[in-house]
Amino acid sequence: MKCQIEITGLVKRFGPNTVLDGINLCLEPGERVAIIGPSGTGKSTLLRCLNFLDRPDRGTIRLGDLSVNAARASRADVLALRRRTGFVFQNYALFANKTARGNIIEGLTTVRGWPQAKANERADEILAQIGLADRGDSYPAAMSGGQQQRVGIGRAMALDADLMLFDEPTSALDPEWVGEVLDLIRRIADGRQTMLIVTHEMQFAREIADRVVFMEGGRIVEQGPPEQIFGRAQDDRTRAFLRRVG
C-alpha cells in the first residue's frame, strides 16, 4: 500500500493523561477514512494534532513530500502542514467579522496572496458548490447552522488541501440541518478528496468511507472496510461500542 499521508507513532499527552498513545495511520490518495469510537478517546485530538491546533508530543506526519517531526516541528513546518490540510470544525468557527464570501477567500488572498479577482472567481465556484450562491454577502450571525457549516466546509475546500479533516461536522447541528451538510460532504467525497472524518453518524460512515477506524483509549483498536467493521468486527470493544450506538 502506498501512502499519500502517513502518520507514525503519534503521541499526545495532556498533563498526566496520554490522549493519543502511538497512532499509526496511512491514507492512500483519494481515500476516505471515518474514525469512530466512544467520546474522549482522542478522535478529535488526533485531527487537531494533524493540524497542530494541539501540538503532538511525538511522532511524524507525512503529507506527500512534506514530513514533519512533531517533537522538532518549526513554525515554518507547522504553517506548511496547515496550508495543505483543510479543517472543518464541529462548531463551524466561521470568522465572525467576515461574510460567507470573506470566509472562503481569506485563505486565498491573505495566506496564498492571490489577487482579489481570482479569489472571488474561486469563491463564486465554491459558493455554488455549497449551494449558497445567493448568500455570499451574509455574515455568519445571519445564517442557519447548516448554512454556516457549509461555509465552513467551503472555507476548507478553498485551500485545495491534500487532506481534509472533518471534526464531528454535524454534531452541533439541529437535526433539520444535518442532511444538507452530509450531502455536501458526500459530494466532496465523490470527487476523490482524501479525507479523515470523525463522526457519530454511523450510517453516514458506513456509506461514505472506504475504511473505518475504531479508536478507544487513544489507540486504534481495529480498522477495515465498513462492511467488516459494521458487519463482523473482530474486537470485543468494537462490537460493544457498535451495540451501544446502533
Binding site: 491546533l53 479543517f87 462548531n91 468557527a93 470568522f95 465572525a96 485563505g107 472555507r155 476548507a156 485551500l159
Partner: peptide, 23 residues
C-alpha cells in the same frame, strides 16, 4: 474573542501577524 476564531485562522495557515490583523 472566542478561542475558535484563533483556531480557525490557524487552520487555514495564517501567521500570528495575519490572524491578529485580519481576524
Amino acid at each position: 474573542v472566542d478561542r475558535s476564531q484563533w483556531e480557525a485562522a490557524q487552520s487555514i495557515g495564517m501567521t500570528q501577524g495575519q490572524l491578529l490583523r485580519r481576524i
